[in-house]
Design a protein around this nucleic acid. Sequence first.
DNA 1: TCTTTACTTCAAGTTAACTTGAAGTTGTAT
DNA 2: ATACAACTTCAAGTTAACTTGAAGTAAAGA
Lengths: 127, 127
Amino acid sequence: MYHLPTTTLRYYEDLGLLYDIPRKGNRRAYTQQHLDRLGSICCFKNTGMTLSELQTLFSYSEHGGDLDKIVDLLDQHCQEVDEQLTLLKQNQQHIKRKLHFYQDIRTAEQTNTPLPDWDNYRSRTFH
Amino acid sequence: MYHLPTTTLRYYEDLGLLYDIPRKGNRRAYTQQHLDRLGSICCFKNTGMTLSELQTLFSYSEHGGDLDKIVDLLDQHCQEVDEQLTLLKQNQQHIKRKLHFYQDIRTAEQTNTPLPDWDNYRSRTFH
DNA sequence: TCTTTACTTCAAGTTAACTTGAAGTTGTAT
DNA sequence: ATACAACTTCAAGTTAACTTGAAGTAAAGA
């Protein structure tokens, strides 16, 4: 359906993250609203929110809805994702340095030139 | 030490990700090489590599070292991190849309103006 | 019509990555 | 010197997020 196995959808349903799903016969027929919510679940989950935190977030939207809490939580999560982006970019740099380092080792072995020293890669940036 | 509990360091050691750690008395005294390796472990782990994949990667560096496999693995991981970055940015947009949406709902409630419609936020970008 | 494939429920099992418990030792601050 | 926090080993326990098993139902294609 959303490249998620039905068992996972069932699991989310058991947790209360999805509900009021209409049936066609005895099978679930998800509406656009459910697909939207599923999209949100995936998004928040993939940005580090636990399913339990998602329960909390969604609970704020029910019965009236505590907008202040929703906005606060979303705002804080936004910042966390900002930090994740920063970290991920740093880690990407680290991996690229490693990659170039080992490529250069291979070249050095093939050309019988001196092996590179990792210290020379520590602060280098690659693109 | 690296803001990791000693139990986690022990766990990595049990998995063979860290070894030959010198002792001062009966306590571990990590060298710069170990700290470097720990940095790599954290980097790879935080970019989605499992500890078991790390075992594999490190096994290529031992006894001689299969440079082709290392380079291949690093190259592929680089691409995966690229995709992660793309996805994370998309998710960030989604979260920012949600945030603005709920902020606008709040404003609308306060000013007694009509509530916003999520459909108008679906393809909007925020910075 | 028959068969296959994907669904259905419910309970129980799995996996990765730690974490905790128990029992003992040691380097450092008072 | 004496306490005490932080280390030590080893085995066992925890947690989140699924996943699998068993047993049954049902829509869609040959």
